[in-house]
C-alpha cells in the first residue's frame, strides 16, 4: 500500500481541530487520504450482483452503508455508491470493480481527492452536528451504519454514523470546503471547551 506523501485538505487545521476537541466530550479530527471510488451501476442487474460478490457484501440500500471486508460502501443514490478504503487502495479497488462490471454499463471513478473525511466522536457529537445540520441524528432515526448526503454548516456533506459504543460520525466533505467546515467546527464547539474548563 503506497503511502501518500502530499498535503491533505485539512493539514493546516490539524492543530485547530485538536484544540477544538474536548476529551471525553467531543473529538474532531481528519482521517486523510482515504481511498474513495465512485461506483455507478444499475442496482438490480447482473453487474450489481457481480460487484456484490467481488466486495463480499450486497450493495447497501438507500440511506445505509455496508462493511465489505476492509472496505466501506456508502449508498449515495439509487445507482451510486462510494467505496471507501485505506489510503492507496484506489487502483486495486478500481480494477476489481471494473472487472466485476465486466463490460456492462456502469462507471468507476477515483474520487479520493474529491472529499476528505472528518471524524467526529464523543457524547456531544450529535448535538454539535445539529448546530449546522438539520437531520434528525437521534439513534432511533440515524443509527449505526446510516448515512446521508445533506448540508452541514451550509456545505454539502455526507454523514455516516459508525458502529461503536460511543457516538462516532464520519463527515465526508468536499476538499475545497473542508477548511470552512473546520473553522466552523472550531467556533461551534468552543462552548464545550469552556464547559470543560469550568468543570
Amino acid at each position: 500500500m503506497a503511502e501518500i506523501t502530499g498535503e491533505s485538505p485539512l493539514a493546516s487545521r490539524t492543530e485547530l481541530l485538536a484544540e477544538t476537541s474536548v476529551p471525553g466530550s467531543l473529538d474532531i479530527g481528519e482521517i486523510p487520504f482515504l481511498t474513495q471510488v465512485t461506483l455507478r451501476v444499475a442496482p438490480e442487474g447482473a453487474a450489481a450482483a457481480r460487484v456484490a460478490d467481488t466486495l463480499g457484501a450486497p450493495l447497501p440500500g438507500p440511506g445505509t452503508s455496508a462493511v465489505a471486508g476492509d472496505l466501506l460502501v456508502l449508498w449515495m443514490g439509487p445507482d451510486e455508491w462510494l467505496v471507501v478504503g485505506e489510503q492507496g487502495r484506489a487502483p486495486d479497488v478500481e480494477e476489481a470493480l471494473h472487472k466485476a462490471l465486466d463490460g456492462e454499463h456502469g462507471a468507476v471513478v477515483d474520487v479520493s481527492g474529491q472529499r476528505t473525511v472528518v471524524e467526529i466522536a464523543g457524547p456531544r457529537s450529535e448535538e454539535f452536528l445539529n448546530k449546522g445540520c438539520s437531520l434528525d441524528l437521534h439513534p432511533s432515526s440515524f443509527g449505526p451504519g446510516r448515512c446521508a448526503q445533506t448540508l452541514l454548516a451550509r456545505t454539502e456533506a455526507t454523514l455516516l454514523r459508525r458502529h461503536g459504543a460511543t457516538p462516532v460520525f464520519w463527515v465526508l466533505v468536499r476538499s475545497s470546503f473542508a477548511r470552512h467546515l473546520a473553522d466552523w467546527s472550531a467556533d461551534a464547539a468552543a462552548e464545550y471547551g469552556e464547559g470543560a474548563v469550568l468543570a
Partner: peptide, 13 residues
Amino acid sequence: LRVHLTSVTEHWA
C-alpha cells in the same frame, strides 16, 4: 441514454 456523470472538481488540482 447510458451515461453516468461524476463530479471530480476537487479530485484534481
